[in-house]
Design a binder for these strands. Sequence first.
DNA 1: CTTCCTTTGAAGATC
DNA 2: GATCTTCAAAGGAAG
Length: 623
Amino acid sequence: MPHAHSSSAASSGGDDLGSTDEVKVFKDEGDGEDEKRSSENLLEEKSSLIDWTESEEKSGEPYSGKLSVKSDLSPVFGKFEPHPAASFNMGYLVTPYPYPNGGAHPLPVSMTSKMGLPAGGGLSLFCPGGDLGQPPPAHMGIPPPYQLDSKLAAGLARTPMYPFPGGTYPYPMLSPEMSQVAASWHTPSMYPISSAASGFRSPYPTSLPISSSSLSRYTFYTARREADESCEDWACRLQNLASKCNFGNEETIVVRDIFVSGYGSGAVQNRLFEEDPSSTSTTLSKLIALASVLETPISEKTLNETIKDEPLDDLLYTSESELYRFSPTLGGGLGLGLSPALVPAPPSKVDIFSHHPRSQVEKSSGSSASEKQSEGTANTNNKEQNKKPHIKKPLNAFMLYMKEMRAKVVAECTLKESAAINQILGRRWHALGREEQAKYYELARRERQLHMQLYPDWSSRANTQRGKKRKRKQETIDGGNNLKKCRARYGLDQQNQWCKPCRRKKKCVRYLEALAAASGSVPHPMATPQSPCSEEDVKLEELSDASSDGEADTPLNSASSPGGLSALSSLASPASDPPPPPRHPVGTNPRDANNPLSVGQLTSQSWPRAAQTRPGHEVISVS
DNA sequence: CTTCCTTTGAAGATC
DNA sequence: GATCTTCAAAGGAAG
């Protein structure tokens, strides 16, 4: 499991930072003797509550990330409420929810708990690639479980003597010794538990003495880099960083907790705001921001361009910060534990708490009070709303699939243009097996569910209203029948008359023909010779062509995504139907079919694109 | 800086 | 209820 690295070092005396060093950080780098002593005491107290069943190490079972904790620790963990059977992979929360393919779905622990997701089942790490693609980027460099040495993992198998509720210790990434430290981190007196929080701690003490505020960017970057290079284990890095930055023990704990919560710093910040909207603690803000910084690697460029005396504070709150941009939870990658849509962009540096996304949603929603205000103030509100964090829609199944597979396609095809990549992904999506698609539909469903939980007042309407005004019906170029698309021309009753692209929701060939006839310049997309980017796409295309005249090309015969809705949706969703007039002279437009560098050329766009099958895979969707 | 492209699916607006 | 529109992601390109 994710933390087997550190665990192995601890248990085998490997080259990783052992427990001695880890603890030493807290002993030696504390603010003073009192803190040192209290840390030691806490450690001693809490370590006695943790039991390892050493004999189980020889069982040969794969390490399951389980550390038994005596039940009387519950007051210590309190409202932390780890998912009954969840384990953590840093940012990627792992729940044992069985997917159709046997995988597991990553969800924040507390959310899975809230949503009543089933516990039990196999404790397998969610691999967004699974058999499809690549693993998620390991958070803080922790390798996915299947990359871990099997022997190493086998030697780490432990069985809980005093099972944590559900049997999983919430800090599986920590070595046994670190886990003891982790236990000491949970000091009730330090973090009073709030009943309002489900899955989150109550607000952190706002009076924490934060030493990081005196750091310069350069110092912090350097410390980060050194911490990164020192070891691969997250907890180890954190400690090294804490050491190099002279964090106090409590500061380190807060940052650590933010990570362990699994929500990422952005969501934790939101939650903390919910619990204490009046908080203006800059200390807490800094810690949260620091956590977000900690989530990202420091690039050479960043380091080189950093002014040595520049205070760290500026960096922490600047949304334009490179660190923020690339933060997996604050607007960077999907993170898969929680999509960016669920973790809004960081707030402005002015007031980290005054831009709580939930409040923004409420304000911008139809039921908001601002809507009832006069138009004069509405303009002002609009301006304000434009500056507010935008809560994005949860990703649908295809979007999740795209996000996961894009890198793979880019690597295969050496294409960079997203439009081209998306065409390929669209084809592959249709060629996916039912079970494989079902996995993404389920994932998308949970994304929506989680989104609803996090932002109950959010509606897509609010997002839509942020943008342009809703258009009326699509205007036809000439308004005449000649330029009508297949749907309008033949109606739903005569779908057999439709051109095949129309059946598949591509650009209407007949419409383009009419357009070309009218303007004399628009080429027919089918006339374009194209080349697939990979052998797989060649196969897809061949199969597609072979079946293009067959029954599989009939929308009604298609077995779509669950319930066959995909095909219906495709028919009913002509969003991409109207081909816009050419924006470029022929030959210069990369999307011009005559242009050898066009999207169509590069992506081997073949019209019509019919049902695609591949050996062993059922045709999923044809429209 | 903003919009477009391109894909599918979901949601909401419109007819 | 059917249809239509927008928006989620991505990043290059064009305006």
